[in-house]
Amino acid sequence: MRVGIIGVGSQAKNVHLPTLNSMEEVEIVGIADINEERVKDISKQYEILNAYTDYRDLLNNDNIDLVLICTPSYLHKKMVVESASAGKHVLVEKPMATTVKDADEMINAAKENDIKLCVVQNYRFFPSVKDTKARIKKGRIGEIISMHAYMLDFPPLGAGYSEWRIEGKDSAGVIEDIGPHLIDIVLHLNDSKIEQIYATGGCIGNLDLIDHAQIMIEFEDKSLATLDLSWMAGAKEIALYIQGTGGLLRCDVRNNHVQEIHQYNTPLDDLSSIIRKMRGIVRDVMTGDYFVGPKKFHKEIIRNFIVSIENNTKSPVTGEEGRKTAVVIESALKSIRNREPVFIQR
């Protein structure tokens, strides 16, 4: 698959370029970025012949089949629509969009031009998330009653981070940065339609934007989800507690561990769970996978997307799924501003 990359900042440089370069089925045909020096350095490093400072020149290259968009999210809609109009399949970084209007325009452009659209939501490919999804599907905990999910991280400051993530008082902050990962996992595990969203959040640091937030979702089947997001905890962690009518699931996403609880959880149950968790961590440390973390799953999503293009099958993360995340982001921000719940229109 012949690939072109639009935007070669930190995400492309640290994740996508090394991943694509390691895949035999991929040829990096061209890159585009407004930073001329960056384009020159990366094209030299990876021996990429076509290097542009205008992404439209990349889209005019007939030798490119698939475009990977790694630009700030506010540029996604324009670039996805133009890429689709140029007949390129599109893989776009998360969040695909932060408004439903933009998401709909991207989806419509993909349909009108008969191209595949996929969103980089790699956290759902963690084995722990897959395991949790399989247990729910098998009915191991009955019907979902509620989910409590949290994702804690450090603020995106310093070398290796893009400034656009924290610029502007209207920035969605943590909701737009790490929020899409957690939102996507929750919606991937519970496919009931969203009825209403209420969110609260604010700034307790010095970034003058939303650095912590809680998002509450009520689904059509009356199940609930609470998402806790923060840059300010001084820790990195992502986990879910899922209560069903017949049991409980604890999913430690980062450490790839799932614990299923029925009736009473004894100290012996906890000990057994800890031993299994440590065995998994030691195995991943020995293979080096533990230190790669979520970056490991970019290759899986890219490979699956290429297969979907070649076989004309469903994308691994569709534009419609990216739209659901946009619904939550947009509604959460509206709820925080207006201090009231947002009811989702069908």
Rank of each mutant, 00 (worst) to 15 (best):
E36W: 02
L227R: 01
E36V: 12
I107H: 01
V119Q: 10
I69H: 02
S223P: 10
A159L: 09
V119F: 02
Q11H: 14
E330R: 00
Y52M: 08
I175Q: 04
R279F: 13
I302Y: 12
H89N: 15
E47N: 13
Q259D: 15
Y264I: 09
T200M: 08
P95Q: 10
I185C: 03
V253M: 01
K324C: 04
K277C: 11
K101G: 05
S146A: 11
L75V: 03
Q11E: 11
D208S: 11
G4I: 00
R135F: 03
E176K: 09
M278N: 14
L91G: 11
N113A: 12
T99R: 08
F305L: 02
R135H: 12
A199D: 07
L209D: 01
N61L: 15
R337G: 08
I281C: 04
I115E: 00
A235E: 12
V92C: 15
L249G: 10
N338C: 04
V80E: 01
K40D: 10
S85L: 06
D252F: 10
I166T: 15
V39M: 12
K40N: 10
I31D: 06
S192A: 14
L58R: 01
R38H: 05
S10W: 09
R339T: 06
I34G: 13
G201S: 05
S10N: 15
S73F: 12
K133D: 13
I145P: 01
L333E: 02
H257Y: 13
K296Y: 12
G288D: 07
E25W: 05
Y52G: 00
L59N: 01
K314Q: 13
V119M: 08
F126E: 00
K314M: 10
V3A: 07
T132W: 06
K169P: 00
H76P: 05
Q263V: 12
K44M: 06
L240T: 10
A159S: 13
E82H: 00
L20P: 06
A199E: 01
D270W: 07
K111M: 10
Q45E: 14
V90H: 04
Y123E: 13
V39G: 07
E260L: 14
D102N: 15
T325V: 15
I344P: 11
N113R: 11
I204T: 13
I329Q: 02
M147K: 06
V100T: 08
W164N: 08
E195T: 07
N122W: 08
I136D: 05
T132S: 14
M216P: 00
A134L: 07
D104S: 14
